[in-house]
Each structure stands twice: as structure tokens, then as C-alpha cells.
Design a protein around this nucleic acid. Structure first.
Lengths: 156, 156
DNA sequence: CCTGAAATCTGGTGGTC
DNA sequence: GACCACCAGATTTCAGG
């Protein structure tokens, strides 16, 4: 699917706020509201817009602590690697998981209400995934920025 | 602001999909649609729901590469620390930035269309922020999971 | 005071040019 | 891509618990 200038503008706007009406979006995109709606629908159906999600304040729901985890694994067994990926994806406390180059093999972003919950999770991680060699934890003392926004250039 | 069982259910649902109608949400929450709408509005106005955002597929917009960066700084100068935070928050390519304990001082998640763009950004990081001592980069080869969802327990 | 129900009104959907 | 008619959902108001 290729995106023209209008689609790109829409993507930038909708990443900031996907609750806006088409009329409101039309103030920025020089397109009629119905054209905007049709484009948004196409973007959703084609999977360019993966999901529309509410971002909640962690402090408000009593889940304040974020942990950044670097994970080293034994890479010999492809089946265990697949299992680990599945395991990570299934854990609700694991917000994000990346398979990376470098010293670490995976980098995780984990939320937990407290250190005990986090410890329990990591205990299960190592006991249920035999190819996990070791991990190091960084506790987030403050969140400087938080989002999944991807800047979309208007011209390719 | 304190949240009852219904609010907590709503937050979990709306983190998965904030485009749902109140009727649809009512199928899961045992509340009338109008009660749901009022609660959602309150959650937004009180800041429990910070933002509602579309999540776009990085591949679809030609910005496929994610970098995980560990940053070490000289911590002597509080003013420079504040400046660095501001700088990070202002960079559109910096999706996330955490101030952490441990070996690293900051962990960043950065998007870029290619390595050159990334290099240029990091060049500006060090030249415009004199207290940046060093950084190490991990390139994300694959994204196992990606989200900002916080599991909200129904009972406090 | 908060929840559920009815009426109004705004925004989204599909056809057509 | 814009215009128009139709319908679904959101907002407001009111009654009941």
C-alpha cells in the first residue's frame, strides 16, 4: 500500500489523537470530512494503523514502576527461542520486547506495581524458559518521554 | 481520583481498543451505554486516560528500524541534566526515554528510517549535550511485542 | 449523588455525480 | 474527491433509586 501526502498528514495527526472528528481533522488536511473518513478506514483495514489505544497514567492505576531488562540467552535451540518470544508476548506485564544485536539478546520494558511482583515475574521467566542465561535490570526512576509515535515524512 | 471496578474494566478494554462504541463496551461491563460514556469522559478529563493514540505499522511508513540506546552522563551538573531531558523529549525520533538506575543513566527507544539518520541524531545528541559521556546502541532486529498497556487489577 | 431511560443533535456511512 | 440523504452513536435532560 502506498501513502500520499494526505495519508501521511492524517497518520501524524491521528498518532497524537485518534479521537478527533473528521471535521476537526479536515481543519488541518485540506480534504472533505468524508474523504478523511474513507482514508482512515482504508488505513485501518490495510493494517497501516495497527490499533487505536488509550494511554493511561501509570500512577493513577497504582502501577508506577517501570523496569528495563537486558536479557542474554543461549541461542543454540531455535525452538526455545520461539518459545521465549511467545512467552514474552503472552505476559501482560511485559509492555515491550525487542530482539536486538549487541551484548544483550532481548531488551524488555516491564511494568509492575512493586519489586515483589517484578521478582516473581522474572523468577517465572527463568524457570519456564531454560535458555535464559542471565538478565540485568534497570529501574526507571522517571519517565522522560513515553509513546509509540513514528514521525511520518510527508514526502517519501 | 479513585477508580471502582467498572472504571478498571473500562481502562483495560479501552487500552486494547479506544474506538469501540459505548454499546460495544456495555457488552463487557454491565453498565448502561450512557454511564460508560460519562465514566470515560471523567477518566479523560481527570488525566487517568492521558491520550488516545493510533499505533501505526513502522514498515508501512518506511521507518522500520528501532534502536535501543543506553546513555551514560556526567551527573554533576543538574542544569545540564534538565537540558538533556528537555532535548530528549523534543526529538521526534526519540519515542521513549527513561531515567534509570544501574550502569546506564538513560535508556532510549529511537526510531529512524536508516542508520545514517540515527547516526546524525546521536551526533547531535553528544554535540548539543555536553554532559553525555558515552552511549551504546542495540539495534532491534525484530519487535516481539510493542505497546504501552498497563494491566489494571479489578480489585485494589 | 449516581445510575438508567428518553429525546435531541452531531458525526459517520454509502450512493451518486 | 465532493455532495447529499440516511442512520447510528453521542450528549443532554429528566425521572427513579
Amino acid at each position: 500500500m502506498d501513502l500520499d501526502r494526505f495519508d501521511r498528514q492524517l497518520l501524524n495527526l491521528v498518532q497524537q489523537d485518534c479521537g478527533q472528528t473528521a471535521d476537526r481533522l479536515a481543519e488541518h488536511v485540506a480534504l472533505s470530512p468524508s474523504a478523511i473518513q474513507r482514508r482512515l478506514r482504508r488505513l485501518r483495514e490495510s493494517g497501516v494503523i495497527e490499533r487505536e489505544s488509550a494511554i493511561v497514567d501509570p500512577r493513577a492505576v497504582g502501577r508506577p514502576t517501570l523496569f528495563i531488562v537486558s536479557l542474554q540467552v543461549e541461542r543454540e535451540r531455535p525452538d526455545l527461542m520461539a518459545q521465549l518470544r511467545k512467552w514474552l508476548a503472552a505476559q501482560e506485564h511485559v509492555q515491550q520486547a525487542f530482539y536486538v544485536t549487541g551484548e544483550a539478546d532481548f531488551v524488555l520494558v516491564v511494568t509492575a506495581p512493586d519489586a515483589e511482583t517484578y521478582d516473581a515475574l522474572m523468577g517465572r521467566l527463568v524457570s519456564e524458559n531454560p535458555n535464559v542465561a542471565r538478565f540485568t535490570t534497570n529501574v526507571a526512576m522517571s519517565v522522560v518521554k513515553r509513546g509509540l509515535t513514528i514521525p511520518v515524512p510527508l514526502e517519501e
